[in-house]
Write a protein that binds this DNA or RNA. Structure first.
Lengths: 141, 141
DNA sequence: AAATATTGGTTGATTTTGTAACTAACAACA
DNA sequence: TGTTGTTAGTTACAAAATCAACCAATATTT
């Protein structure tokens, strides 16, 4: 392809779109609760899918184990989650949100749904379907 | 929306898609030339659009000025670009690729076009059009 | 002209990420 | 029973991003 422009380069477009849309939502979890994106993802997983180990979060959220480890520590300090070793295999610890963590999740979950709906309001349903399909493929999930 | 899943959250999907597709292309500029993404973007701009100042790159590429400043320094050390103060306003310096920098750009530009075509090969033309339109809107460009 | 504000760009300190090495617990197998 | 391998998770150190302070050149205001 000749005259290939930077705006035609899909990874670049994706980065820009991801940064822009993430920055918009960041104001909620960072502004209200001083959380990082990694922390927000961990909270989302535990809140949405129930207690699980760090390893399961790694696999489901596609985050590196060091990121998860640090996010979990930070959330523990904030008293948003608690950890408990599993008796039959003491390498595993089950993570679960505290009551306070649950409230934080509920608040952010609602904001996330609203924020997402707002983002998608500028597209038709057909566009939304195509977008979701393409992104899912590109993300490899 | 109830039962809102993480895979439905557009900023999350975008991040994943951006990371995956960027990681794929990174092997070229990092593997062959030891460049960072910021450096690759600067090279792309100068190669594709001609000599310009750091400020112009900031605006066009949506990069923070410290990122650009550091990328430019690194590229100067690698002898991929040169800088020259403008006579009538000595705060501005015009950046341009060296001959070597031009060759690096040509190589990566070709790879970028090929890589992008490969990414998009999994979609129909209609899907591609919708994807590009949606991403452009989401990126705010 | 002097004082002030603005602009392009750099630097330094702090925060966050990435990479690799590490520990502790368990599993497999000789 | 030991030896070896694997797995969950942490830590230490290096690489990179972020943010604020900074400098020098030019514009603006008085």
């Amino acid at each position: 392809m000749t005259n290939f422009d930077l705006r035609d380069f899909t990874p670049y477009l994706l980065s820009l779109a991801a940064e822009t849309s993430s920055a918009g939502f960041q104001t909620y979890y960072k502004g209200r609760y001083g959380m990082l994106r990694t922390e927000w993802r961990v909270v989302f997983h535990l809140g949405r899918y129930g207690p699980m180990t760090a390893k399961e979060i790694c696999d489901r959220a596609r985050m590196h184990k060091t990121k998860v480890s640090r996010a979990v520590s930070a959330l523990e300090v904030k008293r948003y989650l608690s950890r408990r070793e599993q008796a039959k295999d003491r390498r595993h610890e089950t993570l679960r949100l505290t009551a306070e963590g649950g409230r934080v999740f509920a608040d952010l979950y609602e904001e996330a749904a609203r924020y997402d709906a707002e983002l998608l309001a500028q597209f038709t349903d057909e566009e939304h379907v195509v977008l979701q399909k393409c992104l899912t493929k590109l993300a490899g999930i």
